[in-house]
């Protein structure tokens, strides 16, 4: 009897003014709809209209004619990029930098998390976390200021240390030498993000069932053995998710880090090793105002990135059953 009553109440509830279809339904929940509205307008204004603007990659954009009236030129700008003398340099730098980042920077926070997990002393652990998370929260402008200061010829700590240790006789102007740029860039990126990126892995480690470790101990596994045979396999799904995302960003080798460390592109001696797709788009697009060409280069990059993302995801799904979607 009671069930019957609630059922009736449910039916009545379903027919209350909140339900309905089409525009009338939307108007009936005006308050709820109006909450989405500001956000949705932002989405249209700042994401979808610029997305439509990508069509200037296939046009000869003229600022006075606007996007719609500018003439179509098909793949002209793409061909121009593929035939440009700068293509090799830009692609080479992009691939070298992002490969180095994938190989050296991607595993670093995983290792840090593994090491932190071995620390039993809680105070020390918290201290290390506090110290290594901090650089994540400062801007690349400040990081570049710190890097320039540490590497400076007359007062830099690095030159001072190396001189004291007798490794070099006189100070080196590190930032004027292209051969050191990748080391500087990678160290700075790692310095900034290693701590913060380790949080997700630490959380994954915290979620591991302790009985797995007990079982491993009974089998006679030592600490190192447990690290490789229990901890790593258990956090593998998280690692794979982040690996897929990194592969999907392979052609985004860096932007803010490279710009700030090359003095916003003003450090000309580094251009040959530091110019990547994103900084190239910025330079030809905004400094040289070749809008259509730069948009084409940017679109080329996004398409390759998406193809890589889908490919990495598919492979991960086939091989290990872990994937983004």
């Amino acid at each position: 009897m009671k069930e019957h009553i609630t059922l009736k109440a449910d039916i009545r509830k379903a027919r209350t003014p909140r339900s309905g279809y089409g525009l009338r339904g939307i108007m009936r929940q005006w308050d709820l709809q109006s909450m989405v509205l500001p956000g949705f307008i932002c989405l249209i204004l700042f994401s979808y209209i610029p997305m439509y603007g990508v069509i200037i990659a296939f046009k000869e954009f003229d600022i006075f004619q606007g996007i719609g009236a500018s003439p179509w030129v098909g793949f002209y700008h793409f061909n121009l990029f593929f035939e440009s003398p700068e293509l090799n340099m830009v692609m080479r730098n992009t691939i070298i930098i992002s490969t180095l980042k994938l190989v050296l920077i991607f595993p670093a926070p995983i290792m840090l998390a593994l090491l932190l997990n071995e620390i039993r002393h809680n105070g020390f652990k918290r201290f290390i976390q506090t110290a290594t998370y901090l650089p994540h929260f400062i801007s690349w402008v400040i990081v570049s200021g710190l890097v320039f200061s540490l590497l400076s010829v007359e007062s830099g700590s690095l030159n001072y240390l190396l001189e004291k240790l007798g490794i070099i006789d006189k100070p080196i102007n590190w930032l004027s030498m292209p051969e050191y740029f990748y080391s500087i860039l990678l160290s700075a990126s790692m310095w900034k993000e290693i701590g913060f990126s380790s949080i997700v892995y630490l959380a994954a480690i915290a979620g591991i069932n302790p009985s797995l470790y007990e079982a491993a101990e009974i089998d006679g596994a030592g600490r190192i053995r447990k690290m490789f045979s229990v901890t790593l396999p258990c956090i593998a799904p998280v690692v794979i998710i982040f690996l897929i995302l990194s592969i999907g960003n392979l052609l985004s080798a860096g932007f803010e880090d490279i710009l700030t460390l090359t003095n916003n592109g003003k450090n000309g001696t580094l251009t040959n090793v530091a110019e990547v797709l994103d900084t190239y788009v910025y330079r030809v697009g905004l400094s040289e105002q070749r809008y259509s060409f730069a948009t084409a280069v940017g679109l080329f990059k996004s398409i390759i990135n998406i193809v890589l993302l889908v490919a990495a995801n598919t492979i991960a799904k086939r091989v290990g059953g872990n994937s983004l979607w």
Partner: peptide, 11 residues
């Protein structure tokens, strides 16, 4: 997907 630097800038 994002529009990218140049289209966003122009808009």
């Amino acid at each position: 997907f994002q529009g990218g630097l140049i289209p966003t800038y122009l808009w």
